[in-house]
């Protein structure tokens, strides 16, 4: 049964694959046997990751792409098909966090809102749209969206990030309801607090040491690898429209401060 966890010969596109969580996913996918197309805005980081993929004996393809531009997304898909022959899995991981500084709602400008939603949510929509017809026609495919615990709960003064990540969950569910009958599934990975360079801007809302997280530590990018491999593999074929939350127990709680443990005898 566990052979299904292998990605031998599969082709995966990872957006935002040059750094942070995206890079960690690419590394795990390649170790599990996948050939990987890595898309991100900057060429430098993705070429480094491609070299890592190739050192494992898999094919890697660097495609500089701004996912908020649907023409570039179409090009990313066409180039992947040309160079790697097929697309089994799309991982929508690209997200812009640098501009998402917490701010009172009355200070968020139209431009900031549009730019944030464009990259974090529209980008995922464009990528899903660009692979969907191809996947439906061949009768198989997997779309994996990377959201955030902030897409399920509110965060003070953090509108763009929370709304775009909440939208990712609904994109997943709607794809699941629409494409499931054609053999194409969609699922979401929901990471919790994982410090990367991209989260620097709202570090203020991140706990410093992991003290407030039930298991007592912050997440590491490496935590996401085995989940991405599972969702990209045939081991998850019956999973559709769902999410895997990886947050050290944060969302299982959230009802009282961590460690609040009342003692109330039966009277």
């Amino acid at each position: 049964m566990l052979d299904k966890l292998s990605l031998d010969g599969k082709v995966v596109i990872v957006t935002g694959g040059g750094t942070g969580l995206g890079k960690a996913m690419v590394q795990a996918l390649a170790r599990a046997g996948a050939n990987v197309a890595i898309a991100a805005r900057r060429r430098g980081p993705i070429e480094e990751v491609v070299a890592e993929v190739e050192s494992l004996g898999r094919k890697g393809l660097a495609i500089p792409t701004d996912v908020s531009d649907s023409r570039q997304v179409e090009h990313m898909v066409a180039l992947t098909l040309d160079e790697l022959g097929k697309i089994d899995v799309l991982i929508n991981n690209a997200g812009r966090t640098a501009e998402n500084n917490p701010a009172p709602i009355w200070e968020v400008t139209d431009e900031e809102w549009r730019a944030g939603i464009d990259t974090n949510l529209s980008g995922a929509f464009y990528c899903a749209r660009a692979v969907s017809k191809y996947m439906v026609d061949r009768g198989s495919g997997k779309i994996i969206n990377v959201a955030s615990g902030f897409g399920l709960r509110g965060v003070r003064d953090l509108y763009i990030y929370t709304c775009s990540k909440g939208g990712m969950l609904q994109l997943t569910r709607t794809l699941a309801m629409s494409l499931g009958r054609y053999g194409v599934t969609a699922n979401t990975i929901v990471p919790g607090f994982i410090p990367t360079r991209g989260t620097d801007s709202f570090r203020r809302s991140l706990p410093g040491s992991g003290d407030v997280i039930p298991i007592g530590r912050l997440g590491q990018p490496e935590d996401i690898g085995p989940i991405a491999v599972f969702l990209a593999s045939n081991a998850s074929d019956y999973m559709n429209g769902e999410m895997i939350i990886m947050d050290g127990g944060g969302l299982a709680g959230g009802y009282a401060p961590t460690g609040h443990a009342p003692e109330i005898p039966i009277v």
Binding site: G219, N240, D247
Partner: peptide, 16 residues
């Protein structure tokens, strides 16, 4: 190690 307290539904999309 970082996933805890969570249900993972494997149900063909029922919960969606």
């Amino acid at each position: 190690d970082y996933t805890t307290g969570q249900p993972i539904y494997i149900d063909g999309g029922l919960m969606a």
